[in-house]
Nucleic acid binder design. Structure first.
Length: 582
DNA sequence: GCCGTTTTCGGCCCGACTGTTTTCAGTCG
């Protein structure tokens, strides 16, 4: 209920820095922090209300973590984390994102070669200093050089401190802040805006707009929120803060009569708003954050947002579409693709249980949770055996099948598909043999390794997986983790064409850290005969809620709802599935 | 850092791959 996403994020960072500090992500301390993350995220009640002693009673939280949690609720920050941040500055930690550099190597580079950032690393590489270290060699140097090259070519600048924050880090905290303001007395209208509202992959300083007649109370509540570590600036209408996670958030309060205009202005994108302003100018009007006004300064429209679009002769444009990618022309012709809506989703087709090594919820918990969302169908897709640590053997899958059969009566309204998330290996082959795969109702195939092969090889392996008749959908197409790991390099057009030709669906992975296929790929597929599936890749029942992001991401990619298979009624979906299986 | 305990330390998941090795360490998922 009152999960503090800021607290979760801080412990996640603590786990990462501890892993670096200890030289291994397998270190017991780092893993203990990760367990604490899980415990905090899963706790259903209000952690802030618990004493140190009560906190210790929670599984995965011991005395040290309990102390840190109390510290967070009192100060908005954790001293131990601040200490680790000083010891390992962001530009140094970022080097760990370069494929081939793990914690051990990273620490040695610093201790033995004085590497502290990408510049000093580049200098060490140029001087061929790495090969002189025992355990490292020419190949390692080459590999690191290539990784840096590739990242730069892709516009991915991990070696430097990221000016922009990945959406998965920012969104939960900003939403929590917005939600805390929305429940204040007087019920102010509250909307987070900017990149987050457009579901962009990263965000700069985040924007929240609140419509209220009591701005002082709203600003005070904002500045005093537990996620806030520091107040940067404050005047009557704007408060800027930094959260414990280092994210800057600006709150603006406006008169309720101008709420829509303020949201429109702050949501952007700048290019989109500039086009609207030009359009207003063409009519002799002006558009700014106060609203649309005529030549006499009289308000034409200022709230809600849709009224401004209508006054400009445009159909309302959903926030994820506001990128000046042609949406204004389409809105003028009333030909925009309809936004995908959460209520339209009828099933989830990529879901893990505890049978996956990284799954956190039991099969029963998963079924109950999906049924509670009103789903008409659900596919259980635990990892296949190629993912050695996390995967299931065919015997385990067979046993799970029997378990599912036994549970069919539990939720009669929900069709249960038994499947697996297969691993696409380097050659494009997937787990098990075709005969066994045919005993599965639904197969997701996705990439989990070999992220740094050249484009031609990556494309070949995906095409090969799509050619396999037992593969229904390609999961998280690029394998990226936004802000952390670049996806595989693909010939996107070739992949989309083959998807259309083979009838293999493309997953729209709803996890904020993935949002994969990217909205650029989705946009590129418009007009093509490609089927999509919006999936949550759930590993814990709470992650079913990600579907909300999946539909926004699909909207951002201009995906026609008609092409999304898990919006189809059960009968149509099952017909499609059976026809595909031949 | 947490847990369990036959109470106060010892155990806590791992397998493939790669590059550097001459027997293994580090990375990755």
């Amino acid at each position: 209920m009152a999960t503090s996403h800021s607290l979760v994020a801080l412990f996640r960072e603590l786990a990462q820095l501890a892993a670096l500090d200890e030289g291994s992500s397998m270190s017991f301390r780092a893993r203990a922090y990760e367990n604490a993350v899980e415990a905090i995220a899963s706790y259903p009640g209000d952690l802030a209300a618990l004493s140190e002693r009560q906190l210790t009673a929670i599984d995965g939280i011991g005395p040290a973590t309990a102390k840190k949690i109390r510290e967070f609720f009192q100060k908005g920050s954790i001293a131990r984390l601040e200490e680790l941040r000083r010891k390992y500055p962001p530009e140094f930690v970022a080097l760990g994102r370069i494929p081939g550099i793990g914690p051990k190597t990273l620490l040695r580079l610093r201790d033995e070669l004085g590497v502290t950032n990408v510049e000093t690393l580049a200098a060490a590489l140029a001087g061929q200093k790495l090969r002189a270290l025992p355990g490292l060699g020419v190949k390692t140097e080459e590999k690191i050089l290539q990784s840096i090259e590739r990242m730069r070519a892709a516009g991915f600048e991990p070696p430097a401190e990221q000016a922009r924050v990945p959406i998965a880090k920012a969104m939960p905290i900003v939403r929590e802040l917005a939600a805390a303001l929305a429940v204040l007395p007087g019920g102010p209208g509250v909307q987070y805006c900017g990149s987050l509202r457009r579901l962009d992959e990263t965000t700069g300083p985040a924007d929240i707009v609140a419509a209220t007649s009591d701005p002082l109370a709203v600003h005070a509540a904002f500045a005093g929120h537990q996620a806030v570590a520091r107040v940067l600036e404050q005047d009557g209408t704007v408060t800027s803060v930094e959260t414990g996670t280092g994210l800057r958030v600006d709150l603006r309060t406006v008169d309720p009569s101008r709420f829509g205009a303020a949201c429109l202005w702050r949501t952007g994108s700048p290019a989109h708003v500039a086009r609207l302003a030009a359009r207003a100018a063409g009519r002799g009007w002006t558009l700014d954050e106060e609203g649309l006004k005529d030549a006499d300064g009289e308000t034409v429209a200022a709230d809600p947002e849709d009224a401004i679009y209508e006054a400009l002769g445009l159909a309302p444009i959903a926030p994820p579409l506001r990128e000046d990618r042609g949406e204004i022309e389409q809105a003028e012709r009333r030909a925009l693709p309809a936004p995908v809506r959460l209520e339209q989703v009828r099933g989830d087709l990529h879901v893990h249980t505890t049978l996956s090594g990284d799954g956190r919820s039991t099969l029963e918990e998963i079924l109950d949770s999906a049924a509670a969302r009103g789903y008409e169908y659900l596919a259980i897709t635990d990892h296949a055996e190629d993912l050695s640590m996390n995967g299931a053997t065919r015997e385990q899958l067979a046993a799970q099948r029997a378990q599912i059969e036994a549970l069919r009566g539990r939720h009669p309204g929900m069709a249960l598909l038994h499947g697996s998330e297969l691993n696409i290996d380097r050659e494009g082959d997937v787990d098990y043999d075709p005969a066994f795969r045919r005993t599965l109702d639904w197969c997701v195939a996705s990439v989990h390794s070999h992220f740094d092969l050249p484009r031609a090889e990556q494309t070949r392996r995906i095409l090969r997986a799509m050619e396999d008749p037992t593969v229904h959908v390609i999961g998280h197409l690029s394998g990226r983790r936004i802000g952390t790991r670049m996806g595989i390099d693909l010939d996107v057009d070739a992949v989309l064409e083959r998807a259309a030709a083979t009838g293999t669906a493309i997953e729209i992975n709803a996890a904020l850290a993935r949002l994969d296929a990217s909205s650029e790929v989705l946009y590129r597929a418009r007009g093509m005969d490609v089927t999509f599936v919006i999936s949550t890749d759930t590993h814990h029942t709470r992650e079913f809620a990600r579907m909300e992001w999946g539909v926004l991401h699909a909207t951002r990619g201009w995906v026609d709802p008609e092409r999304v298979a898990n919006l189809w009624p059960r009968a149509r979906f099952l017909d499609w599935l059976h026809a595909r299986r031949g």
